[in-house]
């Protein structure tokens, strides 16, 4: 792989207070992610998947070690700088979609661009392109409440992708979807990964998702148990 490294985790440890003691959620994690990777964090509940996504997404800081995301040391960022990093560089996809119910599909996708203060014509084109990618351009004016679960998650993908982030973090994106929709969602993300060279990092224990991943990182008790890459055919 010649793509540059965009995420570097060096001996990343995260501890949380648990009564009078501390609980170690991540223990000296050493990982790198290159641009364009389609990888997943897999492991049982409590293995540290979400904590790791939090740190990569600049939502939390490591207790020890260094996490560098898109050239920024997460620990040294102020709240405002973290927000800026997320705004311009990172997209999020959640298990429960988290669309804003009072706004239309178009508005939901457009919101990310409003934060970037992009001009209205450029916003319009970017939003419609993003909705085209997920096949929902004809539902732009619909409210989220009128969409199916699969459609909602596709809107969430469009929302994450519309600002063309370098990195997308998806936490259990297929957990609330049936088998057919799960495949469709992951296929959509895989296609965007190829077309836009966006890095995707999943947290999942869904076999249907795992079969599409190029790299699977198995976590157990806050440590990397295995780091498997699919052989390139």
């Amino acid at each position: 792989m010649d793509n540059p490294i965009i995420v570097t985790l060096e001996k990343v440890t995260k501890r949380f207070p648990a009564g009078k003691t501390e609980f170690t959620a991540l223990n000296k994690i050493e990982l790198t992610f290159r641009k364009g990777e389609f990888s997943g964090l897999v492991g049982p509940s409590g293995s540290g998947k979400t904590t790791l996504l939090n740190i990569i997404g600049s939502l939390d800081c490591p207790s020890e070690g260094v996490a560098t995301v898109l050239g920024k040391n997460i620990s040294s960022l102020s709240h405002k700088e973290s927000a800026e990093l997320r705004n311009y560089g990172i997209g999020f996809i959640f298990q429960t979609y988290n669309l804003l119910p009072v706004y239309s599909v178009y508005d939901n996708v457009e919101f990310a661009l409003l934060l970037q203060k992009i001009s209205a014509p450029k916003r319009r084109k970017a939003v419609m392109d993003a909705l085209e990618w997920v096949g929902l351009a004809d539902r732009a004016k619909s409210r989220p409440s009128t969409l199916s679960g699969g459609e909602c998650q596709r809107v969430a993908i469009a929302r994450a992708m519309v600002k063309r982030p370098a990195l997308v973090l998806a936490d259990e994106p297929s957990a609330n979807l049936d088998s057919q929709n799960s495949h469709m969602i992951v296929q959509t993300m895989k296609r965007l990964n190829r077309e836009l060279n966006t890095t995707f990092i999943f947290s999942t224990h869904d076999e249907k998702v795992m079969q599409y991943l190029d790299r699977i990182i198995y976590l157990k008790d806050g440590m990397v148990e295995r780091d498997e890459r699919k052989s390139e055919d």
Binding site: K80, R86, N87, I90, N98, L100, L115
Partner: peptide
């Protein structure tokens, strides 16, 4: 609560 959460995650600052 959910709306503010998603807005924070999307990169909107608390001040904003």
């Amino acid at each position: 609560y959910g709306e503010f959460g998603i807005r924070l995650a999307m990169g909107e600052s608390k001040g904003h």
